[in-house]
Every structure is written in structure tokens, then in C-alpha cells.
Design a protein around this nucleic acid. Structure first.
Lengths: 114, 114
DNA sequence: TGGTATAGTATACTAAATGATACTAATGGA
DNA sequence: TCCATTAGTATCATTTAGTATACTATACCA
């Protein structure tokens, strides 16, 4: 490995901590690919997620400056979420994971065929 | 994003599923950087991990073909673990995460100073 | 004879993540 | 007047992840 990744100060965990969870990757992918979304749009885009979970994941991502939350003072409420500039820096990781995941599916398929 | 990462079939979760856990990243980093290791060496290299957890993580990584387990028929037992060829394909992800994690630490430091 | 070493397993437990369901406020429209 | 809409919160139950501790077999060595 070209880079020295001192395991004892495992920086990998920082990235992992932000990406991990049953819902965060898909939320980030949707916001990256489709841009700004309302809460209810996200809920529709992530089938099976509960309001509580969506709220929690969004709050955590906002806390880390990965996404931006914009509230409109109107009734019924309107809240928009989008990836922050800083959040875009996660894209290479998500892309690398997606590519690996795709190859991994093939790998597992081959194993089954043996 | 250049690549189409259809969120509905979230491949990112595959990579995440393998990397996630309190101990897997550090185990992988150690094996990547230091090569083959015995069980007891790994236990010493990962302070705080219990035998049960180390065993469990290693079994899961082996199950996914990420690492290789070699048992020597001798007493006291000797078992060696190393990264498989396939496991090495995770390296770009770990590197990307490590780089991001390092930058993220700086980002958080700056935020605190504001 | 009894202690040390290795790579585990077994059992019981706590803590964290996730899920299900019900509830809220204020407005516009039928 | 009543219902739908939106972006949540509150409460409780369940599932999963992780921890603590004790136990095992066998050979070697003092």
C-alpha cells in the first residue's frame, strides 16, 4: 500500500461511521443523483423506511455537514434536503463501493456455479 | 455522477456489509500492511478485541473469500490468516476511506475553531 | 505433577440499531 | 365541517451487535 494507513488511528472508521446504516448509502445516492429532494420525496424513494428512521438518518448526515436542510415557513411544511459541497467529497468512496459491490455480485454468482 | 448507480439495487451495501463492524477495517488494514498473521498476533495487534469477536470477524471475512485461513496440524494449534487475492480488491475502498477520514478530521477541527 | 501456550467454543449478558404504531399542527379544499 | 397534506415526535417492542467470562484439548517443559 503506497499510503501509510496506521491502523491504530483508524481513519477508515470515520468514513464508515458516516456511511453505515441500513439507509444512509441509498439516501446519499439519491441526493447525489437526483439533487434536492423534499422529505416526502425521499420517503417515497426509499421504500420501506419509516419516518423515524428517515428523520434520524437525515439529522445525522446534517450533523456531519454531509447534507443541507432548508425549511420553508409554510403550511403544510416543506423541507428540502441536498448534498453539501463537502458531502460531494464522499462520492469517490460511494463510486468505489458501488463498483466493488457489482463485481462482488459476479464473484458470488461464479462461486455458486462451481 | 458518470456511472449509473441505481439506488434501488444498492450495491454499495455489499461492500459496506463486508467492511462494517467495530473490528473489520482494522483487521483488514493489518493483514494488508503486515501480511500473514497468526490468530494470537492479530489478537495482540487489535487491542481490546475478545477472542470471540476476533473469531467471528475472521470467519465472516473468510466466508466472503476476503481472507484465507491456513491451519497447521500441530499442538499447540497454529492458524495463519492472510488477505486473499480477491480481498486485495478492497484496497482502493479502504484507501479512499482512509484519505477521506483524514480530511474529515481536519474539517471537524476547523468547525470547532470557528 | 503441574503450569504454559494456542485457537478456539459456550453461555449469559448489555447496548445499540431498527421497527411499528400512534400522535401533532395549521391550512386549503370539498 | 371534515378530510388530506407535510414533516415531523413519542413510545414501546424487537432485532442485531458487541462484551465478559469461563471452559476445552494436547503437547512441551520444569
Amino acid at each position: 500500500m503506497g499510503i501509510d494507513m496506521q491502523p491504530e488511528l483508524c481513519k477508515v472508521d470515520d468514513a464508515l461511521g458516516i456511511l453505515v446504516g441500513k439507509w444512509k448509502p441509498i439516501i446519499l445516492l439519491i441526493l447525489l443523483q437526483e439533487g434536492t429532494k423534499r422529505f416526502s420525496d425521499l420517503k417515497r424513494s426509499v421504500p420501506g423506511i419509516t419516518q423515524k428512521m428517515l428523520t434520524k438518518q437525515l439529522r445525522e448526515l446534517e450533523e456531519e455537514d454531509i447534507i443541507t436542510r432548508k425549511v420553508y415557513a409554510q403550511v403544510p411544511p416543506k423541507v428540502e434536503y441536498s448534498i453539501s459541497e463537502y458531502g460531494k467529497s464522499l462520492e469517490p468512496i460511494l463510486v468505489a463501493m458501488h463498483e466493488w459491490g457489482t463485481a462482488h455480485t459476479l464473484h458470488k454468482t461464479k462461486k455458486l456455479q462451481q
